[in-house]
Amino acid sequence: MEKFKNNYIIQAWLVVFLSLCFGSALAGVQLVLSPKIEANKINETLAKVPELILGKEGVKRLAKEGLSLKINPRIIQIKKNNRIISYKVFQAIEKGKVSGWVIKSSGRGYADKIELLIGLNPSLNKISGLFIIEQKETPGLGNKIANLDFRKQFISKNTNTAIIASKTGATSPNEIDAITGATISSRSVCSIVNTAVKDLRSSLKKNQIKPI
């Protein structure tokens, strides 16, 4: 009897019992809330797509005409250095015509991963917008990459040449002004944009995916 009482499992019956109760309660919470959480994540991206392609004015015009963009999300895989990289790409269609593309991409920043959306025009030769979804750069310095002032520099940049962040002020058309005190963050954004565009431009063009 004494031996039975001292058994670890018997002593821990309350822990086991509570774990089962809490576990099932959490499973219930997850079951109820997970569709909503997933939807939040997708909506956050989808909500940005029209503005990245058409710009603020374009979105206003669209709303005035009572139209909306049809957005087809798709995954595009490319092979690079013997590794398969997959990108999430959104194709926007207005009145049956492709009105632009949005690429979701990420890369290393100064502090942590930077995740962003790049808008491209239908013929994939100009950037139509840039949005930072997630960044943990230095507050007050590097986190300015999420500000409109920095992002709007990318609009209508040509995608044939790599974009360079210049410390001393942009002089040539493919240069942007780096944020003072956050050169690395600025360069990171440029390199994420350049890589994603380079990786995908040919495959998007080649397939010239038909509007569905």
């Binding site: 002593q11 821990a12 309350l14 822990v15 509570l18 774990s19 809490f22 309660a25 959490l26 919470v29 997850q30 809330l33 997970s34 909503k36 959480i37 939040n40 994540k41 956050e44």
Partner: peptide
Amino acid sequence: KPHLRIVIFTLTIATFVTIVDRFLAAYMY
């Protein structure tokens, strides 16, 4: 039981924290 109380405290707290975390992700994304 005295020697198992901290485990139970942590278990209980972790459960409520997970509920809050999921709730915020769903309603205050």
